[in-house]
Design a protein around this nucleic acid. Sequence first.
DNA 1: GGTTGTGAACATATTCACAGCA
DNA 2: TGCTGTGAATATGTTCACAACC
Lengths: 269, 269
Amino acid sequence: MATGRTHRPATRSRGIPEATVARLPLYLRALTALSERSVPTVSSEELAAAAGVNSAKLRKDFSYLGSYGTRGVGYDVEYLVYQISRELGLTQDWPVVIVGIGNLGAALANYGGFASRGFRVAALIDADPAMAGKPVAGMPVQHTDELEKIIEDNGVSIGVIATPAGAAQQVSERLIAAGVTSILNFAPTVLSVPEGVDVRKVDLSIELQILAFHEQRKAGEGAAAAAAAEASSVGGAAPAAAVVPPAGRAAAVARKGNPEGDVPAVMPA
Amino acid sequence: MATGRTHRPATRSRGIPEATVARLPLYLRALTALSERSVPTVSSEELAAAAGVNSAKLRKDFSYLGSYGTRGVGYDVEYLVYQISRELGLTQDWPVVIVGIGNLGAALANYGGFASRGFRVAALIDADPAMAGKPVAGMPVQHTDELEKIIEDNGVSIGVIATPAGAAQQVSERLIAAGVTSILNFAPTVLSVPEGVDVRKVDLSIELQILAFHEQRKAGEGAAAAAAAEASSVGGAAPAAAVVPPAGRAAAVARKGNPEGDVPAVMPA
DNA sequence: GGTTGTGAACATATTCACAGCA
DNA sequence: TGCTGTGAATATGTTCACAACC
């Protein structure tokens, strides 16, 4: 997941578990594809496969929404599309603003899936006066000075932040002061926001780091060692990066303990 | 969060819980900032605040890595930076390829945080022959034909897919066949990959939909109704979208049951 | 005194397995 | 017979609260 919630304790929204909410869009996408192929019904098994989850989980998820299936038959595709859309609040459309029209902001503005499903880009906002008026994705970029007015005039409640990290907190404060209550943050910073404001973050480098962690493990496992314990089912000191996969310096430091300094030339700042 | 794992059942990697792994990059970022300000030590309380989590969670997370703190004092910043970097596999650098150099791919190629922390963009690959040779982020785009050669020559094990949805599955297959074992997928599709390959996905529209869900709830709560049960602590039918927030059609359909058709004009396909 | 590290309690999420129904 | 819906079992994650230690 390249995703994550910030603040907001775990409110278990309206009886539907967060984990379920996070999967509803997945189901919706799979159902939409079926709908386009005019498939009338699906079983939990088929739909689960299309969404990349297992069928028990899917059925449990749907059970939180109500009893929308038919035993022995499956789910009516159109009906489910509607129910999930409604549950997600996509039966109305949400104006959003994108703040920070750099490479990423422009990419977001051009992203089709954005507009297609209940969301409408109401404005593109950037702090650079040179950007003002320039068309991006067929829409003129507006200057940050206009931010409050834009939010209010359009009734925007969802803001997307694609600014550099340094600007993000301040932008979020202005958005929130103007009435935004949900933020999708692409800037690599922790935003601190008042209670009642939802923040979700998308962070490239975090995702890559998580992948690197798993890569490292794979490398450590496979190669160069039936040596260390694989027998010790869990818990014992596990093989660190016994062998380095593509090319690079191995880190052969002892784990656990090692209380003394050691601290070798640390990473890129 | 904009993220999510696909496939790979929850392997609880090397004794460190997934949830903890997903937070390590957050801690690392906060620590790096402290390190740059030459702060020598932090308490769990301070660091937790900087990372946007609570201190108990942070201490528990660190306890999986070992005992790297000093009671009554806190954690040595440099030492922790090193330990976490090592744990995440960032003490070596990982060549990555980006496939699909459209708006998003270009944005990723230009993204600084990419290169800065253990990752190196080894190549930009696109299927459009017209793109070939064009410089993006100071690097010539290469044609898809070269994909296998590039992966092998550079020992790439991490691939980033930023192609349209339709191309993603096929690209992932070629990447995997050539030796990639971790994929960061920006295309809005479920990739199906063999066991042993990690996929993480970043999906804009999923994140927005999750935000919309919570927005809808907020709207339904506040306005126009002490009407429905707020007293019924949990479980009972809860207020649906009683009132629509910015502007839009309300969906006043009965929940739970409603076995008969109904299916009104469904969403944008 | 102050802060870590961690068992135990609690909360959430996933999976199993089967009763109930079309 | 086939598939949903769901309790019960299990697994994972979070929080509490305090003993251990500097």
